[in-house]
Amino acid sequence: MRVEFILNGRKVAVDVEPSETLLNTLRFKLRVKSVKRGCERGECGSCTILLDGQPVTSCMLLTLQVEGREVTTVEGLEKDDLFKKLVDYFIEEGAIQCGFCTPGILLTAWAGLKQGRFKSVDDVREYVANLCRCTGYVKIINAIYKAATGVAGR
């Protein structure tokens, strides 16, 4: 079945099986490799994408469900100022180790920042519940909180 949707501002058309998840279509057909396959059951957040601006897990979506909608991955935010600021704070804080969870976390954090959700460190902790097996979260949370407020959240 043919599906059309907007991927990072560009219209794409792709033939998919009804049983194909968006995660698979993005990685194996559209070659968007920033979207990571983690737990495959909506728990880890590694496969997070923005669907019409809201973070969702692409392993729990059939590709057919995104017909006509807007899908954003980190590739689509490269030129966004808020995103660049967020990435800078990640680098400054050293909030990355292996990097596997990073794209999903950046997308989730960006959506929260964009919606002005981070008034406190706890807000960040609650909103960005993606799993990371390396960092212990402190630097990630600090980087996001810094991007939101300009101050370190310790």
Binding site: T21, N24, F28, E40
Partner: peptide, 17 residues
């Protein structure tokens, strides 16, 4: 996208339905 040859999605490279 039909211009890009797709990688076959199988149970070996990802968990499919």
């Amino acid at each position: 996208v039909s211009e890009i040859p797709p990688i076959n999605i199988t149970a070996r490279n990802t968990r499919i339905i």
